[in-house]
């Protein structure tokens, strides 16, 4: 009966793989829980609504950007222009708003501008076959200048009771609008990744681009869509940040967010070489990273200690998860 022996061997193989996977994942989550537990123990007033609120608000831009970045990385690419796109979208919205275009057109204009940036990225990457890191580097450098050019000056601010500022402070059923948008975005991305043809095509391109072409997947369109999606999420993050702070700082808006977003995706377990998009992992990663800053602040630690702390957590998670 070599046949039955074969199938049982396969089954055993599969179980073993699954177990290893579990060990790795549990390892990661228990490492994170442990480190959080320890810090919570030593942090006075850590377990409070204030902390949660504070963390989630801080996590908002990182999470939105990281969700987009998850899709980009799933397709085997990378986008380091996310911060600049936040700035461009914020600047467009701010410019429109200050020239009395009204709230809705201002927001829509910002999102449209973000989408166009994504289209630019996606087209250069898929059509001209330039490496994603270089294309998005160009946009990262040029984009911040463009944002200031659009705005006409490095920064503007709005009056405290302007409708854009009210939008930023708006609460739905007692929840800040940022948290509502966050929940909606996560739900949407979970749906996209689990249920849509688009996400499967993205994963296929990330897993084996040659095979994806030969199976008839429209690589040009799919890649462009991935970068557009990512940029729109960045745009929303940028505009909401502008609304929350009541001003546009085109030189500083979203600066270095690409680092936090990439770190969040890495903690979440989406592979750097493309393939499965792990939305849930990204969410956890995107909450952990600002949490570190919040905890550091509550402990009266300096920013740079938080930086070292972040580095240790990212390296720690990846050392636990590594495949030997």
């Amino acid at each position: 009966m070599p046949n039955s022996a074969n199938t049982s061997a396969l089954g055993a193989f599969r179980r073993a793989i699954a177990q290893r996977q579990n060990v790795r994942n549990y390892g990661v989550w228990s490492f994170l829980l442990l480190s959080l537990g320890v810090t919570a123990w030593f942090t006075p007033g850590f377990l409070s609504w204030g902390t949660l609120d504070n963390t989630l608000i801080q996590a908002f831009p990182v999470l939105l950007v990281a969700l987009g970045m998850t899709m980009v990385m799933s397709s085997g690419g990378i986008d380091i222009s996310v911060g600049a796109i936040m700035a461009i979208a914020g600047a467009v919205s701010g410019r429109l708003y200050t020239s009395n275009a009204g709230l809705a057109p201002s927001v829509a204009g910002g999102i449209l501008a973000g989408g166009l940036c994504g289209l630019f990225n996606g087209t250069l990457i898929s059509k001209f076959k330039i490496q994603p890191i270089i294309v998005t580097l160009v946009v990262m450098i040029a984009g911040r200048g463009l944002a200031q050019t659009i705005l006409g000056k490095p920064s503007v601010s709005f009056s405290f009771n302007s409708s854009l500022n009210v939008l930023g402070q708006y609460k739905i059923a007692g929840l800040p609008i940022q948290i509502v948008i966050m929940i909606a975005a996560v739900a949407m991305m979970l749906f996209v990744v689990k249920k849509t043809v688009f996400a499967k095509h993205v994963e296929a391109i990330g897993d084996n681009p040659r095979a994806a072409r030969l199976v008839g997947i429209n690589i040009l369109r799919t890649t462009a869509c991935v970068y557009v999606l990512c940029s729109i999420l960045c745009a929303v993050a940028g505009i909401m940040k502008v609304a929350l702070t009541g001003g546009v700082n085109a030189a500083g808006l979203g600066k270095f967010i690409e680092l936090d977003a990439i770190a969040a995706v890495a903690i979440g377990g989406t592979s750097f070489s493309g393939g499965r998009a792990r939305i849930f992992g990204t969410v956890i990663g995107a909450v952990i990273i600002p949490l570190v800053t919040v905890i550091a602040g509550m402990n009266d630690m300096r920013d740079h200690h938080a930086m070292i702390f972040k580095a240790v957590i990212v390296i720690g998670v990846l050392l636990v998860r590594r495949e030997r």
């Binding site: 994963e203 296929a204 897993d207 084996n208 095979a211 030969l214 199976v215 997947i217 393939g275 499965r276």
Partner: peptide
């Protein structure tokens, strides 16, 4: 040029 190694048999078949 053929397989998507990290995807499932089902996904490979219906790609």
């Amino acid at each position: 040029e053929g397989v998507f190694p990290h995807m499932s048999v089902m996904e490979n078949m219906t790609a």
